[in-house]
Design a protein around this nucleic acid. Structure first.
Lengths: 206, 206
DNA sequence: ATATATTATGAATTATCATTCATTATAAGC
DNA sequence: GCTTATAATGAATGATAATTCATAATATAT
């Protein structure tokens, strides 16, 4: 029950989408507050007024973007996780997918990382009701996997599985930040092995 | 050659400092752009005009704050690292100090984390010339320690020491983020052991 | 081809703030 | 206490940027 759109409607969606893509790049570069609607208009090659025909305002435009991308990314991660069999394999697949998806959605990752602590995220309905559940959904699959791995004797049992996931997420984000601060020179894609090795057995020599 | 200030000068410094402390809380809460000068004035119990007698503008006020706090924090971390003897001890001390200092300077940590990817940081002289060197100074002490540890056979030699430091920094920041997103309920101070255990030997069971 | 409906446009309007500065209050010197 | 210097004040100014809307352009229907 999706395809019930007229051609007009589809064209409208396409225009919307084009604007969101242009906006994404500017938001990633300058953040929400320093991005002007005129900026977005110029880059999407529409007039300001046209943006207001297609979105009810700057904030709503931004929210649409966040919502679409969050859904895309979480769907793609979940699809990857679905295919894994054991806990350790899931972690490996997660790290691999994170690198691939973050590279694919670089602009969104950048704007998200920039604003995740801001009140546009933390205090917003969209965040609480839509984005956070998606994100937590992924995280709790990881927690479950770690927990299962603990039962099976794969993962250590002296650290809370939730903490292990925080560590995994933080550790990988460390590389993400290093990359975002230096997108052109930091070889993010090559760090998969370092991340997994470190996750598996830490820093100490054997 | 410091104490050459008249009482007037000292009082001026004190007023400046009080304003910076009020500003810090608001900047941490709302970020630079959504913080108004009137906000800062109201919270510091001065009039707007008075802020402009003491600082040349909003940006300069913000920069003073960043500079002061960065110097304080890096001085305190360095003092801790100075006292350590072996590489592993340095890592332990670093994690411990990070928890203590981040708790002590919570507001600053919050505003810094919020804006570290913004262009106010990345493209600014203050950042490039003052803050980044301080931060990199600490990080390179850690890299040196890891490198020494590798020679001594303490740390593994199959991950680049720089990557190990990125992992350490990311891993600990993971807990910082979890805490900043939920300052009242996440028991950040209790996570020292998890962080260190994970750093030392990763997630796998022995 | 003409009339009608839909969509795009950007100049004008409005709102929000940073900054200034003429005025008032406070402190210092005599 | 009176005069002068120093500091504080907040209403007025100016700049920037979100939003609106009357008009122009384009598409659709007849």
């Amino acid at each position: 029950m999706e395809k019930k759109l007229t051609r007009k409607e589809r064209e409208k969606q396409r225009r919307r989408f084009d604007i969101l893509e242009a906006a994404e790049i500017i938001f990633a570069e300058k953040g929400f507050d320093r991005t002007t609607v005129e900026d977005i208009a110029a880059h999407s090659e529409f007039a300001v007024g046209t943006l207001y025909n297609l979105f009810s305002g700057k904030e709503q435009l931004y929210n649409s973007l966040i919502e679409i991308r969050s859904k895309q990314m979480s769907a793609e991660v979940n699809a990857v996780l679905d295919k894994t069999k054991g806990p350790l394999e899931m972690v490996r697949a997660y790290v691999n997918a994170k690198i691939k998806l973050f590279t694919k959605y670089q602009y969104f990752v950048c704007l998200y990382s920039r604003e995740r602590l801001g009140d546009r995220f933390i205090n917003h309905d969209l965040w609480r009701e839509t984005i956070a559940p998606l994100y937590n959904g992924v995280l709790s699959r990881l927690v479950d996997a770690i927990r299962a791995g603990v039962s099976q004797g794969i993962f250590r049992n002296d650290i809370d599985p939730e903490d292990i996931v925080i560590a995994l997420e933080g550790l990988t984000d460390g590389f993400v930040y290093a990359w975002l601060e230096n997108p052109d020179t930091f070889p993010f894609e090559e760090k998969e092995q370092s991340m997994i090795d470190f996750f598996i057995s830490g820093a100490l020599a054997k």
